[in-house]
């Protein structure tokens, strides 16, 4: 892949934008006209070239932008990084997972040389050249998971498996949809997901947990989740709600198409070999309604999903302040055409 990394902002003046190619590969989450929670887990197998599923860890044109955004967030609040002491094996697992995958899938940007435990990592886009001893924390400038997670897109929560449960014991979460890793640190799987309306009663988390406890090394899985946001602000954390909350009431009939973004999380889960923990990656893609409208199939489907959305979900996803503007803008674009099942753009 010949990739030009853009340098954009995800805050303040919001210079973030998607190229036509980036819009086209957007992981649109709705395969039907109605949406309700489901476990919707599928194998994280390699997808078509150019798609966000082509590689286990997707690197795209926003790579530098998102790494810089992470740096800014951590500088302001290092509590977005949580590492409980028993997770050191998992930290090294993550170094291996990220470095080996990026070096294999994007060799023009990342190179890894392994000589026993002596590793040499080169990250060309970020200008990092690091020799270290795998397993020896003193040979890296910071904890191993922090070191590598500053060089990869997406939030990551590493779940420790014990007592037939999964615990959020390690994580870097700087671009999340209204939750807090600092608060949820150490929580069991169901405690962590407790605020999601209806899903617990529907048994979603019982089933998901049962499934994940048996996740096998080498057979990662994925699902998508979605939300919307106003402005391409990646850091819509609970911590910064006081900063982005006002944006929710800044939407008007005039600016809705450029200001409101559909925000999709590609969640991939990997069993880790040493720690037996599970790496849960939450990779967020944002596309403005304006860009989404380049594909009528998507825009019609989005309208139908949003009009039939359960009110509790609309509230949980924080849409209430601006949903009417969104619906008014989408409505004239839906001619009622019957759309076959599937998430493809055309």
């Amino acid at each position: 892949m010949n990739m030009a990394f853009k340098q954009e902002t995800l805050r303040d003046d919001y210079t973030f934008s998607n190229s036509p190619e980036s819009v086209r590969r957007f992981p649109f989450p709705f395969d039907e006209d109605e949406y309700m929670y489901s476990v919707n887990i599928e194998p994280h197998d390699a997808g078509p070239p150019g798609s966000v599923f082509e590689h286990a860890i997707d690197i795209d044109e926003h790579y530098l932008t998102e790494c810089e955004e992470r740096r800014i967030v951590l500088e302001d609040d290092h509590g977005r990084y949580v590492a409980l002491p028993h997770m050191m094996d998992a930290q090294w697992d993550m170094v291996e997972l990220v470095m080996t995958n990026l070096a294999k899938d994007y060799p023009e940007s990342f190179q890894l040389t392994q000589d026993g435990d002596n590793w040499h990592w080169v990250n060309q886009p970020l200008g990092i050249d690091q020799k270290f001893v795998f397993g020896d924390t003193s040979t890296l400038p910071m904890e191993p998971f922090e070191f590598i997670s500053r060089q990869v897109q997406g939030d990551w929560v590493i779940m420790d498996q014990r007592d037939e449960d999964l615990f959020a014991d390690l994580g870097i979460v700087t671009g999340q949809a209204d939750w807090s890793m600092a608060f949820d640190a150490g929580m069991s799987f169901k405690e962590w997901h407790a605020p999601v309306p209806h899903a617990p009663e529907m048994g979603i988390f019982d089933r998901a947990l049962k499934y994940l406890l048996h996740l096998q090394y080498g057979s990662p899985v994925r699902r998508t989740n979605w939300r919307m946001c106003v402005n391409p602000r990646l850091d819509t954390s609970s911590e910064k709600w006081h900063l982005w909350g006002p944006d929710n009431v800044s939407v008007t009939a005039e600016n809705v198409a450029e200001k409101v973004y559909l925000r999709v999380e590609l969640q991939a889960l990997f069993r880790l070999p040493r720690s037996n923990a599970i790496a849960f990656s939450i990779r967020t893609y944002m596309v403005s309604l304006e860009d989404l409208a380049k594909y009528p199939r998507w825009i019609k489907r989005l309208y139908r999903v949003l009009t039939s959305l359960h009110p509790d979900l609309a509230e949980y996803k924080g849409l209430n302040s601006y949903l009417p503007y969104v619906l008014n803008w989408l409505k004239p674009q839906d001619d009622g055409e019957v759309l076959p099942k599937g998430t493809q753009p055309e």
Partner: peptide, 19 residues
């Protein structure tokens, strides 16, 4: 929403959208 590690409930700003 309760954290056993912190022994505390989460509090967040009620009037962030409309001060």
């Amino acid at each position: 929403h309760f954290s056993r590690l912190m022994g505390a409930y989460m509090g967040f700003m009620i009037d962030a959208e409309v001060p």
